[in-house]
Design a protein around this nucleic acid. Structure first.
Length: 359
DNA sequence: AAGTCGGGGCT
DNA sequence: AGCCCAGACTT
């Protein structure tokens, strides 16, 4: 690797971690199950966002068996608002596999771990090093940023093959006596000191051993190419009321926001399209009265697409024949189901709206 | 290698 | 308005 500060780097980094590490709820345990839960929650998600979810989740599912036996819809509700909902479905699948194949004991080797649903190279390395004290790499975007600066590497971290370069680097750098602390130290350094913009190099415990700092271009690293442009999709959303209840539907079991509940949505080919007839046909309902057209507009940004929602309040005639995925519920009942954030925002507006219309 | 999959916080 | 975040899975 030709990095001359290997010993000093690992030593200084771990010593700094022992002094300055963040006090996080999943750091009070060595239970591999709880470490696993925390790592899945933390995928592409900030620490501050995860903390309350982690407490609620572990409180409800304190053991691996309790999660294996959990109700799917209840589980999805526990994940509501965290995003990337396939994570929780994969987590339960992986946990079930551990209960069935390994008697409830989380595997302590990379080969078996990475075969579990939802466990990739990073999560496997995190569990192995933190819960089992094994010298395994756990390379995420955070670590790639830090090491691209420390080692002054200019490979594009957006490319899958680049991760291997940093994994091999960590295999050499990792502290053999404190592998878990070393990996977590890299993360804390990335979160507190070696931040994406404006890194606090003057406070950095390994500044003397950072090739990027020596070159004076640490802040320009890492090199990362841009992602593809997002798509724009326009929908009419129908709040269809009858006898104090509204129509909702369950999204398909796979894909975006899988299995979550929402108000009926009809895609518009042009933002100016009228979709009332399409709504009546698709959901086998008849609009009796339009109570309020376009009462709420919302733009919702996902990773790779943008929804533009125009919400309409309509009264419908009583309906009988609807598919299993469609229900009529009160707003209160809807709040007990897993609902994606854009629908929660509509729900909140409706509750406000109803409140004011009573004045 | 590129696309899919959330949501929020920061600059 | 764009970028990033304790990534994994599918094609």
């Amino acid at each position: 690797m030709n990095y001359p500060y290997l010993q000093q780097f690992r030593q200084s980094l771990v010593e700094w971690f022992h002094q300055e590490k963040r006090d996080l709820p999943w750091r009070n345990t060595k239970d591999p199950y709880k470490i696993w839960v925390s790592e899945v929650m933390l995928q592409q998600t900030r620490v501050d966002t995860v903390i309350p979810y982690y407490h609620r989740f572990i409180d409800k599912y304190p053991t691996i068996e309790s999660l294996a036996n959990a109700d799917e819809e209840e589980l999805l509700k526990m994940w509501e608002g965290l995003g990337y909902y396939s994570r929780v479905r994969n987590l339960q699948a992986g946990v079930k596999e551990v209960v069935e194949k390994y008697g409830g004991t989380v595997p302590n080797n990379r080969h078996d771990l990475q075969k579990l649903k939802g466990v990739g190279p990073y999560t496997a390395g995190a569990i192995l090093s933190i819960a089992y004290d094994l010298p395994e790499h756990a390379v995420d975007g955070n670590v790639m940023r830090v090491l691209s600066r420390v080692l002054h590497r200019t490979e594009d971290i957006a490319l899958p093959k680049t991760r291997k370069i940093f994994e091999e680097a960590v295999e050499q750098l990792i502290h053999p006596e404190y592998p878990g602390d070393f990996n977590q130290a890299l993360m804390d350094l990335g979160a507190m000191i070696c931040t994406p913009t404006s890194p606090k190099c003057l406070l950095c415990p390994v500044r003397e051993y950072c090739l990027g700092f020596m070159e004076g271009d640490a802040e320009q690293l890492p090199v990362k190419t841009k992602k593809t442009k997002e798509k724009h999709i326009y929908y009419d959303v129908y709040i269809a009321v009858n006898d104090g209840k509204v129509v909702i539907e369950r999204r398909p079991r796979e894909g975006l926001l899988a299995n979550m509940w929402q108000f009926p949505m009809i895609e518009k080919n042009k933002p100016s399209d009228n979709t009332k007839e399409a709504f009546e046909l698709s959901y086998n309902v008849k609009i009796e009265k339009i109570l309020k057209e376009n009462f709420f507009e919302q733009k919702h940004v996902f990773s790779h697409l943008i929804w533009y929602l125009r919400c309409h309040l309509v009264e419908i005639e009583k309906t009988e024949k609807t598919p299993e995925s469609v229900r009529c519920v009160t707003l209160k009942e809807m709040e007990s189901l897993p609902v994606p954030v854009p629908m929660i925002k509509i729900l909140n507006f409706l509750n406000q709206y109803i409140f004011y219309s009573w004045e």
